[in-house]
Design a protein around this nucleic acid. Structure first.
Length: 552
RNA sequence: GCGCCCGUAGCUCAAUGGAUAGAGCAGCGGACUUCGGAUCCGCUGGUUGGGGGUUCGACUCCCUUCGGGCGCGCCA
């Protein structure tokens, strides 16, 4: 058991003994004070309970302290300070037990069962297959991938899904655009659709089709060639998307095709259920959802007056499908431009008679791409954009991933390509990776010098008595709670900051103390510490989706 | 106009309602012939946009105000 848990137990027992209140009434929060003088751990329990007890917090703390017993003798001192904080000063040796704990099951350190194995689906990126992915997609890709890693690690049965919008208006416009370029390239006159995609990549797609299929579409009837061009083009784009995701090391379990929802009749069926449940009405030749009666601000169209379903209706069918697949929790990552969809999706789940609580939406703010301080405008229509592929190629995968994931998703992200590149030598990601590589390097040298680790139980860990060693151990102990926080809040950046912080502690320690010293037992003890530390770096990097190189 | 997000050091960003608000970058000055100098150590830098309130305690919660972003489609 780690020290913090021991402190918790000691406190719980003591509070129980006072008999003044049940510990379940007031949360027992154990903090790690920023100030060293306030000890290793502290609790504000007395301050929180003062009101209920109508007593002075310092008095309450005093009473609790009286009842504290410390059978395993880990505590050096207990003090009441400030308004009534109880501060614990723990013996350094108490932290040493963490090392064998980590080493006994390296891959499990930090692992938790928060999710209790519930089936959870996370859907992210879901870029329309009508053009290459841009930086914004990159943010969702990396964020979703890391959240999925963390959720799996904390006991959720996670499935990662990419929703492919391979149906509808955008598809049509897209294929018309490609066909127009195709005809142009072959010297035929063509009419480019007014709202068509004007990016240069459309011409590239058309050229590839010419390379592969030749001019065979010139004489084909319009409907037929449009359909064939559509299939060829969209598959090209989808392949590219998959390729770039792979390069970014973002993995999906499922690419879910929108078409299947239409083909299976699920869209139609969904509309029927909504109507049966009395949640729809007709107006101006369209069918509407009464979402305003279900928690949304307004009603939305389900079926347009031309008889076609809206994206919204299909999305309802899609979420119904998710629920039918047995997911108990469904997480979507959407850009802030989709914010208004959150309420209406919840409303529509209620309209279906489903628990809207299963759907959780993470709204991420946009990415502002810059190049040397200058704004890079992004538009799929005009085609002026920096693709994710180019970004990764230019900045590097790990550096780009770290840049995306280091910052909280609910702030607009400034991504300056020049900055990310020029800093590449001092990019925080290398600081973290370097810590890992350094440890590997030490072990390599230790091996060359014939230093062999003993059984951990025969290693004298009490030799780890230096202050920085204590700081590192204490921070290592926090790892599970950082993971827990990152999981509950779906915020990988917490983990990124933690890992950087720990890397900093290590670098500082390294430059002030010899690991491979003359004292053999001290060397062995320090190597064990580094072995455990290395595991935390590896696990952190894995959860963040970056590599932990042995040398750089 | 309404809804949501953001506003913290020159810049980019952190901080489950806790004690003296922290890092990195940039700037300045340093690191003993030893395990990797992609490192380390020190200094400079703040009215947490402004104003009220709740609280023993507020960057954090509430109200208000200013500034920026994103929405408010029979587009997706």
């Amino acid at each position: 058991m780690i020290v913090e848990e021991q402190i918790r137990e000691i406190l719980l027992k003591a509070i129980e003994k006072t008999g003044d209140f049940k510990t379940s009434e007031i949360p027992l929060i154990i903090d790690i004070p920023r100030e060293k003088k306030f000890g290793d751990y502290s609790t504000n329990f007395a301050l929180l309970s003062a009101k209920a007890l109508k007593k002075n917090p310092r008095e309450i703390s005093g009473k609790i302290i009286e009842k504290i017993s410390d059978p395993s003798g880990i505590i050096n001192d207990i003090k009441i300070e400030g308004g009534g904080f109880i501060n614990f000063f723990v013996k350094k040796e108490a932290f040493h037990q963490l090392i064998p704990l980590i080493l006994s099951s390296p891959h499990d350190y930090g692992k938790q069962n928060l999710g209790q194995g519930i089936k959870l689906q996370i859907e992210f990126v879901s870029a329309n297959p009508v053009g290459p992915m841009h930086a914004g997609h990159g943010r969702w890709a990396v964020l979703g991938d890391s959240i999925a890693n963390i959720l799996s690690f904390t006991g959720y049965d996670v499935q990662r899904e990419f929703y492919v919008n391979d149906f509808g208006n955008q598809m049509e416009l897209f294929s018309q655009s490609v066909l127009a370029r195709y005809l142009e390239l072959l010297g035929e006159s063509s009419e480019f659709p007014e709202e068509g995609y004007k990016g240069a990549y459309i011409t590239e797609i058309a050229q590839k089709i010419i390379d592969k299929e030749g001019p065979k579409f010139l004489k084909m009837p319009q409907d037929e060639r449009l359909e064939q061009i559509r299939e060829l083009s969209y598959n090209q784009v989808l392949d590219l998307i998959k390729k770039v995701l792979k390069e970014t090391d973002v993995n999906f379990d499922c690419f879910f095709s929108e078409r299947t929802l239409h083909a299976s009749g699920e869209v139609q069926k969904t509309l029927e259920i909504l109507t049966q449940n009395g949640c729809t009405y007709e107006q101006d030749g369209a069918i509407w959802l009464k979402s305003s009666a279900l928690g949304d601000e307004k009603d939305w169209v389900l079926v347009k007056s031309d008889g076609n379903p809206t994206y919204f209706l299909v999305d309802i069918a899609y979420h119904k499908n998710k629920a039918m697949r047995g997911f108990q929790k469904v997480i979507n990552i959407w850009g802030s431009d989709h914010f208004s969809h959150v309420k209406r999706m919840h409303a529509s789940l209620r309209a279906l008679g489903l628990n809207s609580g299963i759907l959780e939406v993470i709204i991420g703010q946009m990415v502002i791409l810059k190049r040397g301080g200058m704004l890079v405008r992004m538009s799929k229509r005009t085609g002026e954009m920096v693709t994710l592929e180019e970004l990764i190629a230019e900045v590097g995968r790990d550096a780009a991933r770290f840049f995306f994931i280091m910052k909280s998703a609910n702030s607009v992200l400034d991504f300056d390509i020049e900055l990310a590149k020029s800093q590449s030598q001092e990019n925080p990601v290398y600081y973290l990776q370097y810590a890992h590589a350094r440890i590997c390097s030490i072990f390599k040298i230790a091996e060359q010098e014939g230093i062999r680790l003993k059984e951990i139980s025969n290693t004298d860990l009490t030799l780890l008595a230096e202050e920085p060693e204590n700081i590192i151990l204490k921070k290592m102990e926090q790892f599970p709670s950082v993971v827990k926080n990152a999981s509950n809040r779906r915020e990988p950046h917490l983990l990124a900051h933690y890992a950087l912080d720990l890397a900093g502690d290590f670098h500082s320690y390294y430059s002030h103390y010899r690991i491979l010293s003359d004292g053999k037992n001290l060397t062995l003890a320090r190597l064990e510490l580094l072995k455990a530390l290395k595991i935390i770096f590896e696990t952190s990097c894995a959860l963040l989706g970056i590599t932990a190189p042995e040398k750089m």
